[in-house]
């Protein structure tokens, strides 16, 4: 004990020695400067290899961003799933303003020799051919939310249009009052091709409404195509719909984020809130506010996490086994104001 005391006493004496203190300060300043120097160098050149994580597989997620805004969330979950399996997902986004088309993005992905493509197809011509081209080049392609069933895609991740149509119909049946009045439902389509998902959903809605006792012979359901090829055409089409008071629908069903947002704004502009019931798509900030304010009665929300993870899992499974499921179903739900209040 006394030896330790002597040593600490000696150390205390040394600490009081100005030279000893000075040397200690000098060493501390030098070390601090060196640490600061290295920490600064770490911030310099973020491209230095020690700052990045390398992967062995490269996937491309090609999305059409025009009719849904949740692709960033989908990408986030897809990336998480891929990183866990030593893969990296690069997102390539097409918008109407893009110089490169969806086919161009497919070509680019093939030229970049990616290990897999997750394609959110749109109505662009030639996509089927590009999917086949990629498959021929040994790059597996899965489609997400919009299928290209005639192509050589290995899997489809999304919703069964029949099931979705039934779900929409159920929601509409619940929304229609139990009275003797006639009601008109308009479904806004951005893709009116017969084999496209949207059309199939619309067909199923119609079928279920016609069959149901509550709505048969009372509720009619029609579809209107909303143009997406040029700038601002969708807005004009929707405004036209509301300008004609006599043909104004009682219910509107939207199949994309942008049409939902345009309808909400138009409802407010034409003071039709409460008069026309809207079934929206996705839960963007504007749509969420509209649901809270009662402009939108309910909105269809996809499980973006499932979308992201399942798309990557499909590719991975195919790589490891050579086989994968042709179809991965995605959960969905209709969110109301009450649901948002419980969040």
């Amino acid at each position: 004990m006394s030896k330790r005391k002597n040593k600490s006493g000696k150390l205390y004496k040394e600490m009081r020695n100005p030279v000893f203190l000075g040397v200690v300060i000098l060493i501390l300043v030098t070390i601090s400067a060196y640490i600061a120097y290295h920490s600064i160098l770490d911030r310099v050149g973020v491209n230095r290899e020690e700052n990045i994580t390398a992967y062995s597989k490269h996937y491309a997620l090609i999305v059409d961003d025009t009719y849904a805004s949740y692709w960033k969330d989908v990408y986030k979950y897809a990336q998480e799933e891929a990183n866990a399996q030593d893969a990296y997902v690069e997102m390539l986004t097409w918008t109407p303003e893009s110089k490169q088309s969806m086919c161009d993005l497919m070509d680019k992905s093939i030229a970049c020799s990616v290990d897999g493509i997750i394609l959110v197809a749109n109505t662009e011509e030639g996509l089927e051919g590009k999917i086949n081209e990629a498959t021929a080049a040994g790059i597996p392609v899965v489609t997400l939310m919009e299928d290209v069933p005639q192509s050589q895609r290995i899997s489809y991740i999304g919703i069964n249009p029949v099931s979705l149509g039934t779900a929409y119909a159920r929601t509409l049946i619940d929304m229609v009052p139990d009275d003797e009045e006639d009601y008109n439902i308009t479904v806004l389509l951005t893709d009116d091709r017969v084999d496209a998902n949207q059309y199939q959903i619309f067909t199923q809605i119609n079928t279920d409404l016609v069959k149901h006792d509550k709505t048969k012979r009372r509720v009619s359901c029609g579809a209107t195509r909303v143009a997406t090829e040029g700038f601002f055409l969708a807005d004009e089409d929707i405004h036209d719909l509301f300008r004609n008071g006599e043909e104004m629908p009682d219910y509107i069903v939207c199949f994309s984020t942008s049409t939902t947002e345009i309808v909400c704004q138009t409802m407010v502009d034409y003071n039709l809130v409460g008069r026309v019931q809207v079934v929206g798509y996705d839960l963007s900030d504007m749509t969420k506010e509209a649901v809270n304010n009662g402009v939108v009665s309910t909105s269809l929300v996809m499980n973006t996490e499932e979308m992201g993870r399942e798309s990557v899992d499909a590719l991975l499974e195919y790589e490891s086994t050579g086989y994968t499921n042709a179809y991965y179903g995605i959960d969905l739900e209709f969110v109301t104001k009450e649901d948002l209040a419980h969040e």
Partner: peptide, 8 residues
């Protein structure tokens, strides 16, 4: 293949 845009 990396998570860094420059290297990608």
């Amino acid at each position: 293949i990396s998570d860094n845009r420059v290297f990608l």
